[in-house]
């Protein structure tokens, strides 16, 4: 029994009335994304993302296995997004057939795996017999809405941060060098998809929404848990910095005008750019922290002093 979270009538009325008057409970504007905090652990590919109270942890790992028979030149890549009751009692352990959980898993899958964000051909070691299997384990620690957005950032930041052990191939023989012997190598990332979720509210009655042309529906970005519980419709747009739409999912819900949906995509692009830059920035900072002496060793430094 997954306990459903319930929200009281007075609280839901308060929240909706506030939205009608252009206010959100946490004081954000309608199109403001929560501040994303990205923290890396000691190991490569260990990332914690915090967005407001939402907290997601992602751990990337890899091992050598046999590739699929029908795809001998490709490595394996798997994303696991299993929920546990830690994120809230509404999630049941080991049961991931809940509608929302299926949608989360599918959207992450489409955004990251199907869009080819990770170069899986680069994971091939010996065609047909050996390849890398990369695994991303996403753990939801605290739920305050925006799981899709947060886990997508977590997986991408994790993949960018991860290093796999260096290998040497002699014919069929593969030697894996421990991390302390040889500098590990990063994964091939082809693009960085970022998910942005929009929530729709209908301030008027259903008929006005379907027949009318006022288009007065309220659109907010990055809803919190309470807003998620009360919303009438949801749209998740996944974009990358190359102005490509990677995935769009508006699985039913409140019918929305096509032009306002386009407007959402455009807004999402600005956020995508911002978050991608942020990921690059924290990655650079982490790299510096890990390798304090890199500056001393580079030839650039030598030239500066002379």
């Amino acid at each position: 029994m997954a306990k459903e979270i319930e929200i009281s009538n007075s609280e839901s009325k308060f929240l909706l009335e506030a939205l009608r008057q252009n206010y959100r409970l946490d004081g954000r504007s309608f199109s403001q994304f929560r501040d994303v905090k990205i923290a890396f652990g000691d190991e490569y590919g260990d990332v914690t993302i915090e967005m407001g109270k939402t907290k997601v942890h992602c751990r990337i790992s890899c091992q050598i296995t046999q590739p699929y028979e029908d795809r001998p030149f490709e490595g394996l890549f798997l994303i696991s997004t299993e929920n546990s009751p830690m994120a809230g009692p509404q999630f049941e352990n080991g049961n991931n057939t809940n509608e929302d959980e299926v949608l989360i898993a599918r959207i992450i899958e489409k955004a990251v795996r199907r869009s080819g964000a990770l170069d899986i051909e680069g994971l091939c070691i010996v065609a047909g017999s050996k390849c890398w299997a990369v695994r991303a384990d996403v753990h939801f620690l605290n739920c305050d809405g925006g799981f899709i957005d947060a886990s997508c950032i977590a997986v991408m930041a994790g993949l960018l941060h991860f290093r796999k052990p260096d290998i040497t191939v002699h014919g069929e023989q593969v030697i894996m060098h421990p991390v302390d012997e040889r500098e590990p190598v990063p994964l091939g990332i082809l693009h960085v998809p970022i998910c942005v979720t929009f929530s729709f509210f209908n301030p008027m009655d259903t008929e006005e929404n379907i027949k009318g042309d006022t288009n007065a529906e309220i659109t907010i970005i990055d809803a919190t848990l309470k807003e998620e519980l009360l919303r009438d419709g949801v749209l998740t747009v996944t974009l990358n910095k190359n102005r490509e739409v990677v995935q769009v999912s508006k699985a039913g819900g409140l019918p929305m005008d096509a032009l306002s949906l386009m407007e959402c995509c455009r807004k999402a692009y600005a956020i995508t750019e911002e978050i991608t830059d942020k990921i690059t920035y924290v990655l650079k900072k982490d790299e510096k922290r890990r390798n304090k002496f890199a500056d001393l060793l580079t030839s650039e430094n030598a030239r500066e002093t002379s």
């Binding site: 751990r59 790992s61 299993e82 546990s84 009751p85 830690m86 352990n93 695994r135 384990d137 753990h139």
Partner: peptide, 11 residues
């Protein structure tokens, strides 16, 4: 008591 332990890697 329901005790659940989830590993950092894998299932």
């Amino acid at each position: 008591l329901e005790i659940i332990v989830r590993p950092s890697l894998g299932v």
